[in-house]
């Protein structure tokens, strides 16, 4: 009874508001340099935020950013809490069964293993990865023992404290961490570039084909005029992979 009253109140409260095409963009905000929270403002920033804003401008959409934890990022998309995902999400078959992707906006970015020593046993040891990432799926299929964490920085912390022998993640995410660790973390020899996935794309609900097409067009345009490559170089450094 009370629930119904509250529901009715909620209905009345928001019923009369106007509506325009506003797109809510879901992101994680914990995966630098793809997306992270700016210390100064508390807002999300990063490669995907800059790219997403540019895409929205080109597609003439009104976009706002929404932070959501990684492990519930797809469920919240399909239940329409936001309309797109730009969160360093690799395109793969398993996810395609549930959501659809635009064309990739990065080349197939390699993943990599990082560890405390270059000869860490990544095929028989303990490997940390973020829950429900393609990297976690990959580790589960190798002989290694998978240690799952909900947050990306927890996976790195697990290696630092010896909980795991190695961490497996997108190379671009690990690269600055490895560089700034003063030699504490190193790439695992022979496993510093593991091709995985088809590149990172924007995820959308399968029923949202119209929106997908708009973003696809915008991505194509950015690829053609070179502005996408310029963005990639800006955020991932001079030797980053770019589109041909």
């Amino acid at each position: 009874m009370k629930l119904l009253t509250i529901a009715a109140a909620a209905l009345a409260l928001t019923a009369g508001l106007s509506q325009a095409q506003t797109i809510r963009m879901g992101t994680e905000g914990a995966y630098p340099p793809y997306n992270f929270i700016d210390d100064a403002t508390g807002e999300v920033t990063g490669f995907e935020i800059e790219l997403g804003n540019e895409l929205c401008a080109r597609a003439e959409l009104d976009c706002t950013w929404v932070r959501n934890d990684w492990d519930s990022i797809i469920p919240n998309l399909v239940s329409s809490n936001y309309d797109t995902i730009m969160a360093g999400m690799n395109i793969n078959e398993e996810r395609k069964q549930v959501i659809q992707f635009t064309q990739p906006y990065t080349p197939a970015m390699p993943s990599a293993y990082a560890a405390l020593s270059a000869d860490a046993d990544v095929e028989g040891g303990v490997v940390a990865a973020q829950t429900s990432t393609i990297q976690a799926g990959h580790v589960a299929e190798t002989g290694a023992t998978l240690l799952e964490f909900p947050n990306p920085d927890q996976t790195v912390a697990a290696v630092r404290n010896g909980e795991a022998d190695a961490v497996f993640a997108d190379k671009d995410f690990l690269a600055p961490i490895v560089e700034e660790s003063n030699g504490e973390l190193v790439w695992v020899e022979g496993f510093d570039t593991v091709p995985l996935g088809e590149g990172i794309g924007m995820g959308l609900r399968q029923s949202d084909t119209e929106l997908r097409d708009k973003f696809d067009t915008a991505i194509t345009a950015m690829k053609e005029d070179g502005s996408l490559n310029a963005l990639i170089l800006k955020w991932f450094g001079e030797d980053a992979l770019v589109f041909e």
């Binding site: 940390a128 023992t145 998978l146 799952e148 964490f149 927890q154 697990a158 909980e163």
Partner: peptide, 14 residues
Amino acid sequence: TTLVYFSGFPAFQQ
């Protein structure tokens, strides 16, 4: 006890 895997402790080998 349901809190164990929802807080700090990671699930080892799922």
